[in-house]
């Protein structure tokens, strides 16, 4: 940290202005990203997380090819005495043991990972895209537009999002796409407020004022000058968002409004596991929770790594 602080002041200032004001920014843009990649690769924790996360994705996509069991077939001999016979075992091929109904937990975790990761990524993607654009437009344009846009957000936010989600799932029936959209659309509100707040303070910075002064069109200023400068906050928030989406899904599963049997998700597996955690079948909680925790750790480390790498002020 200290060595970053002693970088020459004027050089950075100039570089930043040049970057921001440059009309042929694409060439410079590429160098910005190349630069970021170089620094990201140097971050060991982040790189390790990427590796682990890739492994988890691979597990969720291909994990079912290495087991002879599927996620729905019940072993009638084990059912009913899962506590005694259903523990994880390397010898019988049930590496993660059995779930409460006598089904192979490994196959269920694989399939649950698939659902949870997609809900997390798709939900966060929707939220980030909508929230960033909405928030930066509102913050930058300001005035009446900002007022209307933010009152709209207030209206949306005044309905607790969990409640909206429950109502949506109740009214429009239950489907995985409804989950994606519902979870994503209820989470962009926070994002938009944060982005707006940042935009408001960015707006008065010299480089934006300079851009306005030389007549760069508004949409261009937002996309080229505001949004890239928001990246740090957006990335940090997005990394909080993916696990939050996964958590939201688990809450919905806890209410019984999640994916339908025999499909499952981490949330559903964890909430089943927690119900029986005191009855001697702790592995039913441990395995899904493990994947859940590791994934979130990875997202957090990657988020931090990205922030450090992308932060234009750090060059």
């Amino acid at each position: 940290m200290t060595d970053k602080l002693v970088q020459p002041f004027s050089q950075k200032r100039t570089a930043e202005l040049a970057e921001n004001l440059s009309a042929g920014g694409e060439v410079k843009g590429r160098s910005l990203w190349a630069d970021a990649r170089r620094r990201f690769v140097a971050n060991r924790a982040a790189m390790a997380s990427v590796v682990v996360l890739v492994l988890i994705f691979a597990f969720s996509l291909f994990g079912d090819h290495v087991t002879q069991f599927d996620n729905e077939t019940i072993d009638w001999d084990v059912m009913g005495s899962v506590k005694e016979l259903g523990a994880p075992s390397l010898t019988n091929g049930h590496w993660f043991g059995f779930d409460e109904s006598g089904r192979d937990l490994y196959a269920r975790v694989v399939q649950g990972s698939r659902i949870s990761l997609s809900v997390g990524l798709v939900g966060a993607f929707i939220a980030v895209m909508v929230g960033t654009l909405y928030g930066s437009v509102a913050g930058f344009v300001g005035g009446r537009v900002d007022g209307v846009m933010m009152r709209l957000v207030d209206i949306f936010m005044s309905i607790p999002y969990m409640f909206v989600l429950i109502l949506l799932l109740v009214v429009f029936g239950r489907s995985i796409s409804m989950l994606f959209v519902g979870i994503g659309l209820t989470a962009w509100l926070d994002m938009s407020r944060i982005v707006r707040g940042q935009t408001l303070s960015l707006k008065n910075r010299e480089f934006v004022e300079a851009a306005v002064a030389i007549g760069v069109p508004t949409h261009r200023i937002i996309l080229r000058h505001i949004v890239p400068n928001l990246l740090g906050v957006v990335v940090v928030y997005a990394t909080l968002l993916v696990p939050q989406m996964i958590l939201t899904e688990s809450f919905i599963s806890f209410l019984g409004l999640g994916v339908q049997e025999p499909d499952t998700s981490w949330g559903a597996l964890i909430s089943e596991g927690v119900k029986s955690m005191n009855y001697g079948t702790l592995w039913q909680l441990a395995f899904p929770l493990c994947f859940f925790v590791i994934t979130i750790f990875c997202f957090f480390f990657i988020g931090d790594g990205l922030r450090d790498a992308l932060d234009p002020k750090d060059r």
Binding site: P243, G267, S271, F292, F297
Partner: peptide, 17 residues
């Protein structure tokens, strides 16, 4: 991170336990 990964429907029963 530890605090954030435990959903409260997991943490609640554990606390009670």
């Amino acid at each position: 991170i530890g605090a954030q990964v435990l959903p409260n429907f997991v943490m609640g029963p554990i606390l009670i336990l």
